[in-house]
Design a protein around this nucleic acid. Structure first.
Lengths: 210, 210
DNA sequence: TAGATTGTTAATCGATTAACAATC
DNA sequence: TAGATTGTTAATCGATTAACAATC
C-alpha cells in the first residue's frame, strides 16, 4: 500500500491501537484477537482487521495477533520506535504548557518518542530565557537549528495573527509537518502536512448540542 | 431537522463558516455567495449550500446569503450568541494555559462567548490559589458550583490516570459536555458529549507520514 | 427579461460493516 | 480433526460532489 494513500482516519486508529497495546501489562497473553483489541480501542473487530490488513498479514488465523510483533509494527509505522524531534514555535502560555508536558510526561506514563529540542519566539524579551531547561531562540536561527537538531515537526502556538507567517518561516527552515494550535486555516503547499487543534472550534462543536 | 442527528462533521464546518463571517470586515458586502464562503472556509460551494440547507432556506436565489442574517443564525446554532460557562478540571500546566487563553483571548480577536467560571483541582496545595483572578476550588464543591454558575462544559486537563474519575465526578455534578485533553477514551453514558483533543495521538499521526 | 445563485435531487465516492472461505 | 480467528470480498451506509430546475 502506498503510504501517502493511507487515509488519516486509519492512521489515527493505528495510533489508538498502539496505545492500547502499550497500556496492556507486558506479561499478558502473547496473542490478542481483533475482538479483544477492538474492545480496548472502542471500534469494531472488522475495522481492526481491515486497518491492520493494510500493512501485511500481521495475524495468524485461529490465534490472533502476536502482541510484541504487532506493537513493534505499529510503532515502526508511527515512528514510535525512534526519537522524533519537535520545535515549539511561539512560547506563550500554551507553548510553555505543551513544552513542559512533552518534556516531562513521556517517560512517566506511556512510552513515546517525541522530544522538544527547540523553542522559538519573536519576542526578544523571551529569547535567552529557558523552559524546562531548553533555551528560547530567535526564529532567525531556525534554519540552522532545524538542520542541526533534525527537527521534523513544528508545533505552532503563536497568536492567530502570526500563525501563517510563523508556519511559512518554519517551512523555509525545512519543517514540513505541523501541529497548529492557532485558530486559522494555514495555507501551505500540498506536500506539507498540517493537523489542526482548535479549542474554540471544539467548544463551539460541543455548544451546538447543549 | 432533528438537531441530535446533525453529523459532527457538519457542525464542525458550521463553526468554520461562522468564524469566516466574523473575520470578514463588517462593512463588506451585505451578501455572500456559497462560492465566496466556500473559498474562505476551504470547502466546496456545494458543501456550503448543503450544510446550510439543513437549517432552513437561509439564502436568496440569484443573490446569496445575507451576511448578518447568516451570521446570527450560525451564532444561535452554536450558542455563540450567549455566554457559555465552562469549568476547567485539573489546573496543571495545560489547565492553566487554557484558562489564561480563554479568559484573555475572547475579547481581543474573535468574538466568542465561552467563559471559564470555575477551576477545580484535587491538590489541596492548589486549592485557594488563583489563576487569572479565578479561585481554584475543591472538586467536592463541584455540584454546588456547577449549579450556581450554570456550568455547561467541562474541560478535562488532569493526568491520564485521573481523567475517568474526574469526568465521572463532573457528570455527577451535572456537567454533560466534555472537552477531554487526557490521552484516554472516557467511558461515559451515551447521552453525554465528549470531544477529545489528544496531542500525542496527533503527533503520532503526523509522524506516520514523515 | 437575462443573469446569477440557491435548494434539492441524483450520481459518485469512500468508509464501515457483514459474511465467509482460507488457514492456523 | 474441531474450533477459532484471520484476511478478504461483497453489501451497506453515509457523506461528498455534480447537475439543474426553481426563483430571486
Amino acid at each position: 500500500m502506498d503510504f501517502r494513500a493511507v487515509p488519516d482516519v486509519i492512521v489515527r486508529r493505528l495510533a489508538i491501537y498502539l496505545r492500547c497495546l502499550q497500556e496492556r501489562s507486558q506479561d499478558d497473553d502473547d496473542f490478542i484477537s481483533s475482538v479483544q483489541l477492538s474492545q480496548l480501542a472502542g471500534v469494531t473487530a472488522a475495522q481492526v482487521r481491515k486497518d491492520l490488513a493494510n500493512f501485511g498479514q500481521l495475524g495468524k488465523q485461529g490465534v490472533g495477533y502476536e502482541v510484541i510483533r504487532l506493537r513493534s509494527k505499529l510503532a515502526s509505522l508511527l515512528k514510535a520506535d525512534q526519537v522524533v524531534s519537535v520545535a515549539v514555535i511561539g512560547v506563550g502560555e500554551l507553548g510553555t504548557a505543551l513544552t513542559r508536558y512533552l518534556r516531562r510526561y513521556p517517560y512517566m506514563e506511556l512510552a513515546h518518542s517525541f522530544e522538544v529540542v527547540a523553542l522559538f519566539d519573536l519576542d526578544p524579551q523571551k529569547q535567552g530565557r529557558e523552559v524546562e531547561g531548553l533555551l528560547i531562540e530567535d526564529p532567525e536561527s531556525m534554519a540552522k537549528v532545524v538542520q542541526e537538531r533534525h527537527v521534523r515537526i513544528g508545533v505552532i502556538t503563536v497568536p492567530r495573527i502570526a500563525a501563517q507567517a510563523a508556519a511559512e518561516a518554519a517551512l523555509r527552515a525545512g519543517i514540513t509537518a505541523f501541529l497548529n494550535f492557532a485558530p486559522v486555516r494555514l495555507e501551505l503547499p500540498p506536500d506539507t502536512r498540517v493537523l489542526n487543534t482548535d479549542v474554540l472550534l471544539e467548544l463551539h462543536q460541543l455548544a451546538f448540542s447543549l
